[in-house]
Nucleic acid binder design. Structure first.
Length: 268
DNA sequence: TCTTTATGGCGAT
DNA sequence: TCGCCCTAAAGAT
């Protein structure tokens, strides 16, 4: 479930389990064998996230840069670790825990300088200290739709397809509006909402966006469980009635990704 | 036992 | 804009 909240959560989870202690590092699959051999037995010295990028610090040896992409997964378990299949790209193992990485887009050993370059090309992250001003600078000058801009990691880091759809719904914003058509107040509301939603996402390790007054219980409807594990308004609900106004939720392809929105509620 | 789909992103065209 | 990379679970047959 790799949107930014997942990665920040993983950074904290790694630190909690392995931080400051030596870890055994292996690549059962072999694709990260060289890096793993270099790091094996060294202590994990830092663990950071920026957007969807995870950085595991090994002091002077550099950083393991991990990007889960669409399919990647990181899972933890109690020691001793079971035999690894041939899809485990990276395994970290301590005395009490192990972590397995499968299917990532990126798993590579990088230098401080290379890490800095990644930070430099990413936009502000609602889960890191700072403001959304840098994002506004780009959005307010762009003719691209706000839906596409929210998915552009150079503009804002960490927002994925679920948060994109949900924050635009919550703010009542038509996803096809041009970035430069937004007002500063609208952008500030989007940013503040993302900060709040994504912090909740880190805390509970899932995406919940439905306000208390719109839960099935509050609306007098039968309980509902979205198949991705959280409670949302429009993401993957195309064809179903909007939880607020009853209009049929729509979907469309936007830049090879599925966009979801409610034409009844998102009129701003 | 297939085919499809998925909360991403890169590089070539 | 397109193809491509990576994996696993759900859905179709």
């Amino acid at each position: 479930m790799p949107e930014g909240h997942t990665i920040h959560r993983l950074a904290a989870d790694h630190w909690e389990r392995f931080g400051g202690r030596p870890v055994r590092v292996t690549s059962p699959q072999g694709k990260f064998a060289d890096g793993a051999a270099l790091l094996d037995g060294r202590p994990l010295e830092d663990s950071q996230a920026h957007g969807k990028h995870l950085f595991l610090g090994f002091g002077p040896l550099g950083w393991v840069h991990i990007h889960l992409g669409l399919f990647g997964k990181l899972g933890f378990g109690p020691a001793p670790a079971p035999p690894a299949g041939d899809t485990v790209r990276l395994r970290l193992a301590g005395d009490e825990h192990y972590a397995d990485l499968r299917g990532p887009t990126a798993c590579e050993l990088i230098t401080d300088e290379e890490k800095r370059a990644i930070h430099d090309r990413l936009g502000p992250d609602p889960l890191r200290p700072g403001t959304g001003d840098r994002a506004w600078e780009r959005i307010s000058r762009s003719r691209t739709s706000v839906a596409a801009l929210l998915m552009d990691q150079k503009v804002i880091a960490g927002v994925g397809n679920v948060y994109r759809a949900e924050v635009l719904f919550r703010q009542g914003i038509d996803p096809y509006r041009a970035g430069r058509g937004l007002t500063r107040a609208e952008w500030d509301a989007v940013w503040a909402d993302l900060v709040a939603l994504m912090r909740e996402g880190v805390r509970f390790n899932r995406i919940d966006t439905v306000r208390p007054e719109h839960t099935p219980e509050a609306m007098g409807r039968p309980p509902r469980v979205d198949d991705h594990g959280g409670e949302v308004y429009v993401y993957r609900r195309a064809g179903s009635p909007c939880l607020v106004c009853g209009t049929e939720v729509r979907t469309a392809d936007l830049g090879n990704r599925n966009l979801f929105w409610c034409p009844g509620c998102q009129t701003r």
